[in-house]
Amino acid sequence: MAEERSRKNKKKMKKWVKVTLIILAILVVALGAYIFSVYHSLSDALHTMHQPIRETSDKRTEKVALEEKDPFSVLLLGVDERSGDRGRSDTMIVMAVNPTKESIEMISIPRDTRTEIVGKGTEDKINHAYAFGGVEMSINTVENFFDIPIDYFIQVNMEGFQEIVDAVGGVTVTNDLDFTYGGVHFPEGTLTLNGDEALLYSRMRKEDPRGDFGRQLRQRSIIEAVIKEGASLNTLTNYGDIFTALGNNVKTNLTFSEMIDIQKNYKQAAKDMEQHQINGHGSTINGIYYYIVPDEEKAKLQQLLKEQLEITE
């Protein structure tokens, strides 16, 4: 009898082992299909996003080696692109990333900043560089303004930004100014915004006593919230929408392998993100408003970025 019970237990055990193996096989196949689908969607998005420019900045003797953890810089451009119009880069943020210091220095450039437009031969508002010559003229102009190399750029189409926000399921921000814009009321405190609301929230400028600086703060908070939501587990089920939205609205010269290197070697730098604003004053020249940055202010910011990028004179 004991022998028969043992035989039955062994039979049950074999059955459960078989069931378990079948379940594991199904999970492996499903996971493989999921990974293939993710990789395929990601490849399509990266192909659409990738926009190569010059190989190396004139202000560098050697190309940045991300695998060796060299400090690098990024120019973030928020562009209003409309049909038949290249638009202007109303958002310009320079980020200097240093993995040794585990920090990122961020400087927002006011769109009305008067400076030399490199390649145009005139002084104008810095955001006009994009309208005159696209990404490359914007990069050259910012390099000249800060006297540093710009290694990479990320261009976001603000007209389609709501598509990205909706793809990650909305964003949560902390609002420090009660205002109404575009028929939507934004009270002070923690707000959860959909794509349309996030676009309005990031565009308001005239009702903010801080003007363009206030708008830059809101734009940065939206971008940071998108990155946070995009990295969360909640986005695993709608990765297709996210990759499609990125492919439609983001351009960059970063390659896939460079993105992997940054994720692997530089993620600690995001722990310490310092934001700076450019001090200056408004002035009307020939009937046009400009933001004038004093030479000493520009020199101070140039030194800050050079130290962060470990650039020696």
Rank of each mutant, 00 (worst) to 15 (best):
R5H: 05
K206H: 06
L200G: 00
F213N: 01
G87P: 00
P149Y: 10
G211K: 08
E197W: 07
T122G: 01
A167K: 05
E188M: 10
R215L: 08
Q275H: 12
K18M: 14
Q308W: 14
K298G: 04
K63Y: 05
M204W: 13
V184D: 05
L193V: 05
E116F: 11
M13H: 14
P110F: 09
T141H: 03
A33G: 03
E207Y: 10
I223Q: 07
G211I: 13
K267T: 15
E143P: 00
I262M: 11
L309G: 00
H40D: 11
S221M: 06
E188T: 01
D147A: 01
N286C: 08
Y201P: 01
T190A: 08
I164F: 01
K120W: 10
E102T: 14
Q302L: 11
E229I: 07
F243T: 03
M137L: 11
K8S: 04
F256G: 12
K12L: 15
N238V: 10
E143S: 10
E3F: 13
S283M: 15
D70T: 12
L236S: 07
K59H: 15
M273D: 11
A225D: 04
Q275S: 15
H50V: 12
F153N: 03
Y181R: 07
K14C: 15
D208F: 07
D241T: 13
